[in-house]
């Protein structure tokens, strides 16, 4: 039964992604600039969280390096934005992100557990200090202007395109041998290695893909702020927020993180708009509630609900007979 449905499912996911993107694309025509600002925020975190879960979901390596790559992208835009034609800056950011992620991945993915978490957190700080040092030494100042005319609509479309792309790439990875290898690593890395999987290559490959997307998001977002400095570009809050959103949604499924991003982004907005002076306290309380009541994420809730329905449906025939 499942086997027969495979081919249909094969096409269903990419079609849903493309259809969804096509449906959302005309939104700037109807949404006012306040709603656009909210949508840009949701999309930005959707891409980041999905990219995060691409690597961290199957491998269970919790990464706090999101801000490092995001900031790298923002700085690429700041450095090259006025020197290269705009369409070339994004590929340049992707390339830089990929190269840095390869170097970082090769040197660190031998770490695991809490050591990896701490290292990735340190990575953002390391890149930030390097940028500060380089700017002070050679640039003469630390802040950089980003005078690039990309309006909110432009950013919205780019992020929407990136989201569709990251979902499709994620889907392709999941369906490939690489996807199986990652899941094996997540279950038990030693066993995976013994069954002939080159764990380092697999981990680095997906880490690079994930980081590349994060870097491009940074490059897309930078023009919105006109000015960046290391503390804006490498803000650790970005790493934490992505982690929390992805975990709320559920990192086990490709679409899981988005289910976390949307409610949290809307919740942040409501808290921010209505309780601007007690935002942090309410946010903390919300996290407690989430961890306590939704430990497996929204995806977990959906699975639970599905199980229940299935059980209810399964039970029904008996009294009917």
């Amino acid at each position: 039964m499942i086997a027969r449905n495979w081919t249909l499912k094969d096409w269903a996911f990419p079609l849903v992604v493309l259809g969804g993107a096509a449906l959302l694309a005309p939104l700037p025509a109807v949404a006012g600039s306040y709603w656009m600002a909210l949508l840009v925020n949701i999309l930005m975190y959707s891409v980041l969280a999905t990219a995060w879960a691409l690597f961290s979901g199957p491998t269970h390596y919790v990464s706090l390096a999101t801000a490092a790559f995001f900031g790298l992208g923002a700085y690429t835009m700041a450095f090259l934005g006025e020197k290269l034609p705009l369409p070339l800056v994004y590929p340049a950011a992707a390339l830089i992100g990929a190269v840095v992620a390869t170097v970082v991945g090769l040197s660190t993915l031998r770490l695991s557990g809490v050591y990896f978490v701490i290292f990735t957190f340190g990575l953002a700080e390391l890149v930030r200090q390097l940028v500060t040092w380089g700017e002070a030494k050679f640039g003469g100042t630390v802040g950089r202007f980003v005078f690039i005319d990309v309006n909110q609509q432009g950013i919205f479309w780019m992020l929407l395109g990136l989201l569709a792309l990251v979902l499709l790439v994620g889907y392709a990875i999941q369906r490939s041998r690489l996807g199986w290898a990652l899941r094996a690593i997540g279950e038990d890395e030693t066993v995976a290695r013994h069954s002939g999987i080159d764990t380092t290559v697999s981990k680095v490959a997906v880490f690079v893909v994930s980081a590349t997307f994060m870097t491009v998001v940074g490059a897309v977002m930078a023009p919105r702020w006109t000015y960046i400095d290391p503390s804006i570009a490498f803000n650790p809050i970005i790493s934490f927020q992505v982690l929390i959103m992805a975990l709320l949604g559920g990192a086990a499924r490709l679409y899981g993180p988005i289910l976390g991003v949307v409610p949290l982004a809307i919740l942040f907005e409501i808290l921010q708009a209505n309780f601007p002076n007690s935002f942090s306290i309410l946010l903390g309380l919300t996290f407690l509630v989430i961890v306590y009541f939704v430990p497996n994420g929204v995806v977990g809730l959906i699975d639970q609900g599905r199980d229940k329905i299935a059980r209810a449906v399964g039970r029904r025939p008996h009294p009917a007979e």
Partner: peptide
């Protein structure tokens, strides 16, 4: 509103 010292929050 509080922008929590984040540029993106200030813009929004």
């Amino acid at each position: 509103y509080d922008d929590r010292s984040q540029s993106e929050e200030a813009v929004r």
